[in-house]
């Protein structure tokens, strides 16, 4: 397995190197590029760690969408104007960080790692309605976490609405983008639908599908489709808010039916989960789109 170990080591070094570049380069665009590269390498390493669901999400959301946000910010914030830290401060920071990360490495490397979860997940998977264990955890065993997570998205959206930073008006990218968008958008919609459907038994699910849809939406935006039409924005906002509403109401409805909050009725778990996931996909896509395009009345560049 030596080549694999070598690959792992190279990957880890690549992740660290890219992250260091992202955090030290003085050129804004360069740092963002390094950050996105870090995200992709991290996604790759998570595939190696046996977590394809997370890898998909990291590639789409962690690298793609966050990178787009950073690019937007890099343009608006202008060049870096940071003063170098005092030497004592830099030294103290380096020392503290080194100590802490050494302690963490020791702690994680020596931890017993005897998780209580896999046998319990395996035992309960039959009743969960889906066969992908990650989806089962996200939407059944620990659906409460997921509900609150959607709430985080909604609150972030509320915050952005309140702050109303400048709206995104894309550059005219010329003739190239529109044909690109014409191809990308239908494909992305198909892929999203597929990810959503196969999330029940294979890697994929609402988050990944939502992220892909959001990517399609952003392609449309950058391709020149104007999202500043009031009606369109209202519709998107309503869609974004609807996901949490549907999830919460479903939780209450399930309690009314079975007596347990988020406890789906026997045998109908899959239907409930697919319905909730469908709503979440659209809502997540709309939320991510709005988080990127913003609400401001003014526009920037």
């Amino acid at each position: 397995m030596s080549p694999v170990v070598l690959f792992d080591a190279a990957l880890a070094l690549g992740v660290l190197g890219c992250a260091a570049l992202a955090l030290t380069l003085r050129d804004r665009t360069g740092t963002v590029a390094a950050f996105m590269l870090t995200g992709l390498l991290v996604a790759l390493s998570w595939l190696r760690l046996g977590a394809p669901d997370v890898a998909l999400a990291e590639a789409a959301i962690g690298a793609g969408l966050t990178g787009a946000l950073f690019l937007r910010g890099a343009r608006r914030l202008g060049p870096l104007r940071a003063r170098p830290p005092a030497p004592a401060q830099a030294a103290a920071a380096a020392l503290g960080a080194a100590v802490l990360s050494a302690a963490l490495l020791w702690a994680f490397a020596t931890a017993p790692a005897e998780s209580l979860y896999p046998p319990r997940v395996a035992a309960a998977l039959e009743d969960s309605g889906v066969s992908n264990p990650v989806t089962a955890v996200l939407l059944n065993f620990r659906a409460w976490d997921t509900l609150l997570e959607i709430a985080v998205l909604v609150v972030a959206l509320l915050l952005v609405m309140t702050l109303s930073p400048p709206r995104v008006i894309p550059d005219k990218l010329g003739a190239l983008v529109q044909p690109f968008a014409r191809i990308v958008v239908p494909v992305a919609v198909l892929v999203a639908g597929h990810l959503l459907w196969q999330g029940a038994e294979a890697p994929g699910g609402a988050f990944q599908a939502g992220a892909v849809l959001a990517g399609a939406g952003l392609a449309l935006v950058l391709g020149g489709v104007r999202v500043d039409r009031r009606v369109l924005r209202r519709a998107l906002t309503a869609l974004a808010l609807a996901g949490l509403a549907v999830f919460t109401l479903a939780a209450l409805a399930s309690q009314a039916v079975t007596g347990a909050l988020l406890g789906y009725p026997d045998g109908q778990a899959k239907a409930w989960i697919i319905a909730i996931e469908g709503a979440l996909t659209l809502s997540i896509a709309a939320t991510l789109c709005l988080l990127f395009t913003g609400y401001g009345r003014r526009s920037a560049r």
Partner: peptide, 11 residues
């Protein structure tokens, strides 16, 4: 227990 799943698996 939310969803009827006991801790530690459930919440």
């Amino acid at each position: 227990s939310l969803g009827g799943w006991e801790a530690p698996l459930g919440i």
